[in-house]
Amino acid sequence: MNWTPAALSQDIPSGSAAPGQLGDKDIVIWRSASGRIAAWSDRCPHRGMRLSHGFVRGEFLSCIYHGWRYGDGGQCHRIPAHPELTPPEAIKVPVFAVVESGGIVWVAEKDAEPADLPMEFAGFASFRTIRTTVPASIVAAAFGCTGLELRGTLGGTDVVLLLQPLTDGCNLHVLAADGTGPDQLDRVSVAVEALRRQAESVQEFAA
């Protein structure tokens, strides 16, 4: 297993949580007040509520339903309905391996964590993520490539596109050449939206 690009670091600011995917698994990606990133199963073990709807306080993520509070390693620290109880180590949320590099949040299965760090893309900076219902292979073909790591130009700017397959489509994580100015980035945005529409029309035509 390789690392999977699951989000851009800039889209998970401190104190926030967001839903993501790894393969067919729903995950929550969240960042503590001090800036620590984590990726967990997106399901509170109490009654199945999605933790990505939860709230971050300090170094803890709490479920929005009954406030069960989880910290480092997915460990449960507090059950508000039973404040006297110190939750045992056994009560925890399954966690995933996560590492940030080049402005990208990479995740992997905990028991299949890659030995190597994720690939770095020297000379590129993370720009934005867009989501589509089209499979990665069709997006790559629309860009004139194959695979999940595409290089080329969009709107006249050199880019790297990292495609993340999802159960119902894929994410396009867009990296633009260092030093690309705001006006040029706007043109990259327009071009990547056009790429998405092109891929979606290919899929509709095929259907």
Partner: peptide, 18 residues
């Protein structure tokens, strides 16, 4: 936003308390 969408009649993947 609860998983699974159906109501479990086996709590083996949940942690009900008092």
């Amino acid at each position: 936003n609860q998983i699974p969408a159906l109501l479990p009649l086996d709590p083996g993947k949940e942690i009900p308390t008092r």
